[in-house]
Amino acid sequence: MARAALGLSLRELAEAAGVSVNTLSRIEGDGNVTSRTLGRVQSVLAEGGAVFRRDGSVGVEPISIR
Results as ranks from 00 to 15, higher is better:
M1W: 05
A2T: 06
A2R: 03
A4K: 15
A4T: 07
L6M: 05
G7L: 12
G7C: 12
G7W: 13
G7S: 09
L8K: 03
S9A: 13
L10W: 00
L13A: 05
L13K: 03
L13F: 02
A16P: 02
A16N: 02
A16M: 07
A17R: 04
S20G: 15
S20Y: 09
S20E: 11
V21Y: 00
V21K: 06
T23A: 13
T23V: 14
L24V: 05
L24P: 01
S25W: 08
S25T: 13
R26K: 15
R26V: 12
I27C: 01
I27E: 04
E28C: 05
D30L: 00
G31E: 11
G31R: 11
G31P: 10
N32A: 14
N32I: 06
N32T: 12
V33Q: 13
V33E: 08
V33R: 07
T34K: 09
T34D: 10
T34L: 03
S35I: 09
T37W: 07
L38S: 08
L38D: 07
L38I: 05
L38M: 11
G39D: 11
G39K: 09
V41I: 00
Q42E: 12
S43P: 00
S43A: 15
V44N: 01
V44T: 06
L45I: 06
E47Q: 14
E47Y: 07
E47W: 04
E47N: 14
G48D: 03
A50P: 08
F52Y: 09
F52E: 04
F52Q: 02
R53S: 13
D55L: 12
S57H: 14
S57N: 14
G59R: 12
G59Y: 08
V60R: 08
E61F: 14
I63T: 08
S64C: 05
I65P: 09
